[in-house]
Amino acid sequence: MKKPFWSIPALFLFVNLFGNSSFGQQVTPAAESAKGVYQYRQAAYDGIGKTYMGREISQVMGHLGAAWLERPEREQEERTDLLLEAINLKPTDVVADVGAGTGYFTFLMAPNVPKGKVLAVDIEQAMINDLNQTKKKTGFKNVEPVLGTITDPKLPANGVDMAIMIDAYHEFSHPREMMTHIVRALKPGGRVVLVEYRAEDPNVPIKPHHKMSVAQATKEMKAVGLSLKSVYRKLPQQHVLIFQK
């Protein structure tokens, strides 16, 4: 079986090149440590030295990695068709794609919510520019790019049926703040979907801090009032974790 091109050592090079270009890890360690939410230590080679609930937050990928997000082989490597099946969108759903990047999955979801919309959230203006360009090219009027911040995705309160984060949550420099805002944005019965590379599987060729286990994700979502409802395991290397209030 052919390994994806980001396997060792390609991903090492990729994250080292682009790992500090996005989620703006300007932090105030003393203040955050005093609150007891985050702690700090010597950074691992693929981490930022900031920990949350025992997990070191990973380095991040920004606009310089846009070509990787849009690679032609992504559909087959990640089986995005199965991911669409797993999240079971309704035509009227309002979906927040948090950490949307170039909008690769945003524009796959858009046709499935013709009476709803996709809020494509990113914190980089360059990504928002890409999203707007693709929206113009594709003609999807139900896609709305949203410029968020490292602590707030800028979503409408009680206005979202589903918030999905695809290989993004583990990179959030302020996960507690981000998730608190996301939970507030959920409608009654709304869902949070995390798509993450499986930390439980040593054969998944991704750097350790860019993976998440079901147990760790469940613990972190519980801290903001969410409980695990289901786990979809049919993707080649990722699991799809679905949470609700």
Score class of each variant (00 low, 15 high):
His239Leu: 12
Ala30Ile: 12
Glu200Cys: 06
Lys137Asp: 12
Pro72Phe: 07
Ser213Asn: 07
Tyr169Asp: 00
Val231Phe: 10
Thr149Lys: 02
Gly36Ile: 06
Ala100Asp: 00
Thr138Gly: 03
Glu78Leu: 12
Ala120Tyr: 00
Thr102Lys: 02
Lys137Ser: 11
Ala185Glu: 02
Leu108Cys: 09
Gln59Glu: 13
Tyr197Asp: 05
Arg176Leu: 14
Phe243Ile: 13
Val146His: 02
Val60Lys: 03
Pro208Asn: 05
Val183Ile: 12
Ser213Asp: 04
Met178Ser: 02
Tyr52Thr: 05
Ile57Lys: 01
Met1Ile: 09
Leu108Val: 04
Pro145Lys: 07
Ile206Asp: 01
Asp152Glu: 05
Ile128Thr: 01
Met221Leu: 15
Gly19Asn: 03
Pro91Met: 07
Ser21Thr: 14
Val98Tyr: 00
Pro29His: 08
Tyr45His: 10
Ala34Glu: 13
Thr92Met: 11
Ala110Met: 13
Leu89Phe: 07
Ala31Leu: 12
Lys187Ile: 09
Arg176Pro: 03
Gly99Gln: 06
Val214Arg: 09
Ala223Asp: 14
Pro145Thr: 08
Thr51His: 04
Asp46Phe: 13
Gly189Gln: 14
Glu56Cys: 10
Gly49Phe: 12
Asp93Cys: 11
Phe18Arg: 02
Gly54Cys: 14
Trp6Thr: 04
Ala67Phe: 13
Ala126Met: 05
Ala31Met: 06
Ala223Gln: 11
Pro111Cys: 12
Ala199Gly: 08
Arg74Asn: 07
Gly190Asp: 11
Pro153Trp: 01
Lys211Ser: 03
Asp93Pro: 03
Ser213Thr: 11
Lys3Phe: 08
Leu235Ile: 08
Ala185Arg: 00
Pro153Phe: 01
His174Lys: 09
Leu147Phe: 06
Asp122Val: 00
Ser213Pro: 03
Asp122Arg: 00
His210Pro: 00
Lys229Phe: 04
Phe243Gly: 10
Asp122Ala: 01
Thr134Lys: 15
Val95Arg: 06
Met165Phe: 02
Ile123His: 00
Asp161Glu: 08
Pro4Gly: 07
His174Trp: 07
Ala126Asp: 13
Val146Asp: 02
Lys136Arg: 15
Gln26Cys: 10
Ala163Thr: 08
Ser22Asp: 05
Val60Met: 10
Leu84Phe: 11
Ala67Arg: 14
Asp201Gln: 09
Arg191Gln: 15
Gly101Ile: 00
Met165Ser: 06
Leu82Gly: 08
Leu82Ile: 14
Leu64Trp: 05
Ile164Asp: 00
Pro111Phe: 13
Asp81Trp: 06
Glu75Cys: 08
Gly65Pro: 05
Ile128Ala: 00
Ile242Pro: 02
Met212Tyr: 03
Met165Thr: 04
Gly62Lys: 04
